Simulated assay, not measured.
Amino acid sequence: MTGSTGPQQLPLVLPHEEALGVDDYLVSTSNQAAFNLISNWPQWPSPIVTLQGPIGSGKTHLVNAWQELSGAQIVGGDELEFLDITALAESGPIAVEDLHSGFDEASLFHLFNAVRLADGNMLMTTREWPNTFELKTKDLESRFRAATPVQVQEPDDMLLRMVLTKHFADRQVTVDSSVIDYLVIRIERSLDAARNVVNLLDRHALATGKKISRVMASKIMENMDE
Rank of each mutant, 00 (worst) to 15 (best):
G3K: 07
S4T: 15
G6I: 09
L12G: 08
L14E: 12
L14G: 10
P15E: 12
E18K: 15
E18A: 15
D24H: 01
Y25V: 10
V27P: 08
N31K: 02
N31G: 05
F35L: 10
L37T: 14
I38Q: 08
S39D: 13
G53V: 06
S57K: 04
A65F: 05
G71R: 00
G76S: 07
G92T: 03
G92V: 05
A95D: 11
F103Y: 04
E105P: 08
L108K: 01
H110C: 08
L111N: 11
F112R: 08
A114E: 14
A118L: 04
G120T: 10
L135R: 08
K138F: 13
F144W: 06
R145Q: 14
A146Q: 12
D157N: 04
L159P: 03
M162C: 01
K166W: 05
H167W: 05
D170H: 09
Q172T: 12
T174A: 12
V175I: 00
D176W: 00
S178A: 12
S178R: 06
L183S: 02
R186E: 02
V197P: 12
N199D: 12
L200Q: 14
L206N: 02
A207I: 01
K210Y: 03
K210D: 07
I212G: 07
I212S: 03
V215I: 07
I220G: 02
M221C: 09
M221E: 06
N223E: 12
